[in-house]
Every structure is written in C-alpha cells, then in structure tokens.
C-alpha cells in the first residue's frame, strides 16, 4: 500500500512515516505542494495524507491538484489548528477525512483506515 505524506515539517513526516511503515505501508513523502503533485503524477498511490497550513501553496491547493490528477485517491487531511470552516473547505475540495494534530499512532491508523474504507465503500 503506497502512501504519500505532504507536510512542510520534517518531524511530522518522520512521525507519520514511522507509524505507517510499522504497519507495512510503502511511505513516500513531499515537503511542498509542487513536489507532492510531481510524485502523484509519477506513480500510483493508495492514500494521500496532507497538512493544511504550509508556507507557499497550502494543503487546500494540494487537495485540489491531487483531485485533478487522481480523482479516486483517498485523501486524509491533518491540521494543528482546525476550525469547522477549514474542515468544510477541505472536504469541499475533495478531502475524504480529517485528523487533528497532535495524534497518537493508533488515532492516525484509525483515521487512515477510516479514509480508505470511506472511499472504498461506494465503489
């Protein structure tokens, strides 16, 4: 299972990578929206986990671009500061689920599974 993590903070990427790799997932990472977009274009992924607040192009842009390139890709967004408004904006752009930072490994895994299940169900 190929997972793409997009976040400008290396420690978040590292944390998520450790949790997901421990579950046997194939984790790829990008620190900017441009790089993430590039990687999505290059290869197939089963899930994208993206931060919202990033310098330059932000997570909303990432979600929008990912939807264009990979319409069926399950997208999980995460944020350290989330309001009902940001969550709604993300969902409108195509995110399937949301997880608030900080989270425990179990919470992250549960959110990932929930995202995939949510996307799989209608198919």
């Amino acid at each position: 299972m190929r997972v793409l993590i997009v976040d400008d903070d290396a420690i978040v990427i590292r944390s998520c990578r450790r949790v997901l790799e421990a579950e046997g997932m194939d984790v790829h990472t990008a620190s900017t929206v441009e790089k993430g977009e590039e990687m999505l274009a290059d290869g197939d992924f089963d899930l994208m986990l993206t931060d919202i607040k990033m310098p330059g192009r932000d997570g909303f842009e990432m979600i929008a671009r990912a939807r264009r390139i990979r319409p069926g890709l399950p997208i999980l967004m995460m944020s350290g500061y989330s309001t009902a408004g940001t969550i709604a904006d993300g969902r409108r752009l195509g995110a399937d689920h949301f997880i608030a930072k900080p989270f425990t490994p179990d919470e992250l895994l549960q959110a990932v599974r929930h995202t995939i299940a949510q996307v799989d169900e209608p198919r």
């Binding site: 420690i11 450790r18 949790v19 350290g80 900080p102 425990t104």
Partner: peptide, 24 residues
C-alpha cells in the same frame, strides 16, 4: 493561543507518536 497551538502541535505529534511507539 492560535499561534502557539499551531507551533506546538507539530512537535507534540512527534512526541506523542514516538512515545507511543516506544511503549509498544
């Protein structure tokens, strides 16, 4: 609070993650 929360939450994610991973 908003600024602090955002800045703290990323490192907090790491602390939570690694603490729990070690506890496993």
């Amino acid at each position: 609070a908003a600024g602090v929360a955002h800045e703290i939450n990323n490192p907090l994610t790491a602390v939570l993650t690694f603490t729990h991973l070690i506890l496993r």
